[in-house]
């Protein structure tokens, strides 16, 4: 899972007013837990997921895990 630069370049964290940065984030679904590089706020760490990631790669991984 990764994000294209143009997908996020304009977004900032509204609370902290910080530009987003890529860093390792823990995600889990069913019995799967792994670390992926996702954009998040360097201060409050809220993680950014855009539509193409949610409905693309993320969904694919979810479905893959559901069929395990």
């Amino acid at each position: 899972m990764y994000q294209e630069k143009e997908d996020y370049q304009s977004w900032i964290c509204d609370k902290c007013q910080k530009e987003l940065e890529l860093s390792k984030v823990k995600v889990r679904y069913l019995e799967g837990e792994f670390e992926v590089e996702l954009l998040n706020c360097p201060t409050c760490h809220q993680v950014f997921v855009n539509e193409s990631l949610a409905l693309g790669k993320m969904l694919e991984v979810e479905q893959g895990l559901e069929d395990k």
């Binding site: 984030v25 823990k26 995600v27 889990r28 679904y29 837990e33 996702l38 998040n40 760490h45 809220q46 993680v47 997921v49 539509e51 949610a54 409905l55 993320m58 969904l59 991984v61 979810e62």
Partner: peptide
């Protein structure tokens, strides 16, 4: 403007 969802849980620390 848009709505979407996912089931994967993001573990924010």
């Amino acid at each position: 403007k848009s709505v979407y969802s996912h089931r994967m849980e993001i573990v924010e620390e």
